[in-house]
């Protein structure tokens, strides 16, 4: 289920500077949510990249694949569901774990795990412990 290897394709310098070794990609249009999530993730020693909508997230995915995507549903430009549809067309994204983060869990697309807002911090941490290679693999 989890990707053990880092992607092999070349990484854009800008992205590298911006997101570094980020293992979680946070996709949310709300800055507060993005910052809080990043802090929560960083608290257990992981790094996070952020995108404000699906289109931006796809741009980042094109450069580097994270261990986990935390995806909001309602976003301008490209919604979470549209991004999922776009990802399904790309085989290299097929095995990327996606965690839907929403205030309306009932409206989440079926078959995907949901992290209801407001975020249960412990729950997120447990998710990350299960998903992120940077936590499971010995750190370099």
């Amino acid at each position: 289920m989890l990707r053990g290897n880092l992607p092999t394709r070349p990484v854009k310098s800008v992205t590298e500077t911006a997101h570094g070794e980020s293992c979680v990609l946070i996709v949310d249009d709300d800055e507060g949510v993005r910052d809080t999530l990043r802090e929560v993730i960083e608290m257990i020693g992981c790094s996070a990249a952020t995108a404000t909508n699906g289109a931006e997230a796809l741009d980042i995915l094109a450069v580097r694949l994270p261990c986990l995507i935390i995806l909001d549903l309602l976003m301008p430009v490209m919604s979470g569901e549209e991004m999922i549809d776009a990802m399904r067309k790309e085989p290299s994204y097929a095995r990327l774990p996606v965690l839907i983060s929403t205030s309306a869990p009932g409206q989440a697309p079926p078959g995907l795990p949901v992290l209801a807002k407001p975020i249960d911090i412990e729950k997120l941490w447990s998710w990350m412990r299960r998903s992120c290679t940077c936590l499971t693999a010995p750190r370099t």
Binding site: D30, D35, E39, A104, I119, I121
Partner: peptide, 17 residues
């Protein structure tokens, strides 16, 4: 469903953090 809840969620999560 969205606009009011999001900032409140941030308030709560930050306070808990």
């Amino acid at each position: 469903g969205h606009d009011l809840r999001n900032p409140l969620n941030t308030v709560l999560t930050t306070a808990r953090l």
